[in-house]
Design a protein around this nucleic acid. Sequence first.
DNA 1: GCTTGCCCTAGAGTTCACTTCATAGTTTAT
DNA 2: ATAAACTATGAAGTGAACTCTAGGGCAAGC
Lengths: 137, 137
Amino acid sequence: MKIQELADRMGLTIHTIRYYEKEGLLDDRHVRRESNNYRNYSEEAVERLKLVKKFQSIGCSLAELKGVLQDLDNNARTNQQIIDWIRGKKKEIESKKEEYDQMLDILNKMLEYRTLLMEDPIKAQEMLKTWHAGSSD
Amino acid sequence: MKIQELADRMGLTIHTIRYYEKEGLLDDRHVRRESNNYRNYSEEAVERLKLVKKFQSIGCSLAELKGVLQDLDNNARTNQQIIDWIRGKKKEIESKKEEYDQMLDILNKMLEYRTLLMEDPIKAQEMLKTWHAGSSD
DNA sequence: GCTTGCCCTAGAGTTCACTTCATAGTTTAT
DNA sequence: ATAAACTATGAAGTGAACTCTAGGGCAAGC
């Protein structure tokens, strides 16, 4: 498949895909060149880019991703190193999820207040007071 | 309190704090100038920066944050607009959390496989096969 | 055969969120 | 009184991840 098709399928621009290749996130299992020098992508490229997007969505930098993917590809690290990396990542993600939960709490309170403000502004005022009494951070 | 003290308390650099001010995240409730032109921060500045950090940690850009904070400050938007914004943010966070959960699943599988690989490589091989049979994305 | 459209490369430009620098005024300690 | 330490400003620099441009090669339709 040619680059534009892959870009459409993945929701990326052709620039981004070429950029990823330059950054070492794709290798010859994913891209080959046709006789006219056009890039030709395999289905594996789709899977690879899905993985890239997934990791990226949880805050992996491209550099980190590159390391991980290459290590998985060619077993550059020992199994123990990989296990350690996975454990570290899991912790990161779990604490990130906690932050998100805290943020959801904040938003829920805000929403509660704002909704009440539309229905019963006086009660909303009271709500504010109880918050200010008991919130310190 | 002067800038270095605030920086220490918040775990930020003085540069970052001045930068935030320049970007409109702090106003005269948070910073005033002394006669010598030094910035003098109130306790509210601490709360404000905590809020900034919180929003930032869930992926808000400073620009978005500026809009939100200013709107909350001076009621620039209608209550309904704010409610809509909160609902939108909640959805964003919830779908982000789902992504994190998916990622945790992936990591857990990887961990399971890698652990087994150390204890019983043959079983690990079998594990790989069952995955490849049933995974498409 | 010529236009239109997709492909190539190398490199410059952009945005975000800082970070560093140059230069200078102020305060504090010795 | 002078040095060290803190403050100020404006502007330039950084790194990540794109994004765009210039200048060119191939390919498909009329």
